[in-house]
Simulated scan of single mutants.
Amino acid sequence: MSNQLVIIDELKQLFAAETPLIDLRAPVEFEQGSLPESVNIPILNTEERALIGTAYKHQGQEAAIRLGYQIVSGPVKKERVAHWCQFVAENPHAVLYCFRGGRRSQIAQQWLKDTGVERPLLAGGYKAARRFLMRFIEEFGAKNRFILLSGPTGSGKTALINAVKNFYPALDLECLAHHRGSAFGAWRIPQPAQIDFENRLAVALMKLENKLLPQTSLLVEDESRHIGKNCLPDSFFIHLRNSEVIWLDEPRAVRVDNIFNDYILNTVIGHAFQKTGAEGKSMQEQALTVFEYYKKALVAISKKLGGLRTREIMIDLASARLDFLNRNEIQSNKIWIEKLLTYYYDPLYLKSLKRRQVTVIFKGSNSAVIEYLKNGTNDFAANRPGYQHARFSTDVS
């Protein structure tokens, strides 16, 4: 990596090292998608960019360039250069980029150099880096093998993915998407833009690449193509769906407890339940918005769930809300959670797996799966003498 330019061949090192980046594009461009570890300190704001674009369209390139220098001059230029200098002072390895690595990043680089600060820019800018990241996802999927961690809703797949990361390469897609993947699974923080999700996925795979030995498969939770509003890239999703499966098998009572912990106890509902006084009152109001969200999520799946069962669960949800509001009691939420599993999620999940005709290489409880991974699947268990595939069972009770 030179003082002037970061070339395409150096991008993997740059992203794997979480190098801080200064995105010089306008905020409207940044919001549509950005590179990981970047902060938006634009050379032109959205309105200024629009003015220059209009000048370019009607008067040509030279007029647009002149207008740009007029807009970003004097105190405006001084302030923007100061922001870049401050960021570089705090992040000495920072790299600059604009859309194509052209005029905006070259001007910013020169203005910084005029103050005695030399930082490289990305060759080809955002566009080239974005193309590199998408190509990396496709190539990673083609040359590596995966094991899908599957199992009915509430079996604790995401928790297991994170539990084994210290000894087995595993990827948490839900963390990248900020969503649990179900109608009820929104996080309190917003999901990333689709482009940002794909870029995060690429960098996560880069960091895992060195942990994958020739006979090691990457453990990934069995997700649908869509995780909330984010969507897995087509080729990567196809590679995942063609992979062998580990089936996480937990009793329904355990799964109800898992969902209760995730969706009730470990949310603002549970926090309000544990608080008293003015703070508790304030949190209680926030908790009621969570119940309202669950009500809307139930309505969203009502067509597949059916009218009678939707009304039944809606009554149970309303009853749990009143128990919380009037008696500060939350255990009754387990009633609607169990019915939601029985009526909706279990049949849906099993129907999907039967249609896909998955190959299950191991089936067991949380502790059994962890033990299986600790003992090693690197030589592919299916090829070991005496090994038999676990039989797929529709028993999810």
Rank of each mutant, 00 (worst) to 15 (best):
I301G: 01
A193W: 04
D316C: 09
W336G: 01
E10V: 06
A177P: 04
K374F: 13
L219K: 02
V358W: 00
C98D: 10
I107C: 10
Y387N: 12
P169Q: 09
F236P: 01
P385T: 13
L322P: 05
L51K: 13
A128C: 11
N333M: 05
Q59K: 14
K303M: 11
A183P: 02
A55F: 11
E47S: 09
Y372I: 07
S352K: 12
E329S: 14
T216E: 13
A26W: 01
D172Y: 06
Y56T: 09
F99Y: 14
R391W: 09
K334E: 12
K143F: 06
S155E: 11
P190S: 14
I238R: 06
Q215S: 13
R241V: 07
A63W: 11
L176D: 07
W111R: 05
T115S: 06
F237E: 06
P27C: 10
E292L: 03
F392Q: 05
N3A: 14
E279S: 07
L288R: 05
E138F: 01
Y372R: 13
V72S: 03
R252S: 10
I71W: 08
F15A: 01
Y263M: 09
L208K: 03
Y345Q: 02
W84T: 00
R66F: 05
A142K: 10
P192C: 09
M134W: 03
L201V: 02
V72R: 00
I195L: 15
V88Q: 00
V254W: 04
P42Q: 04
R135K: 15
T115N: 07
V95Q: 03
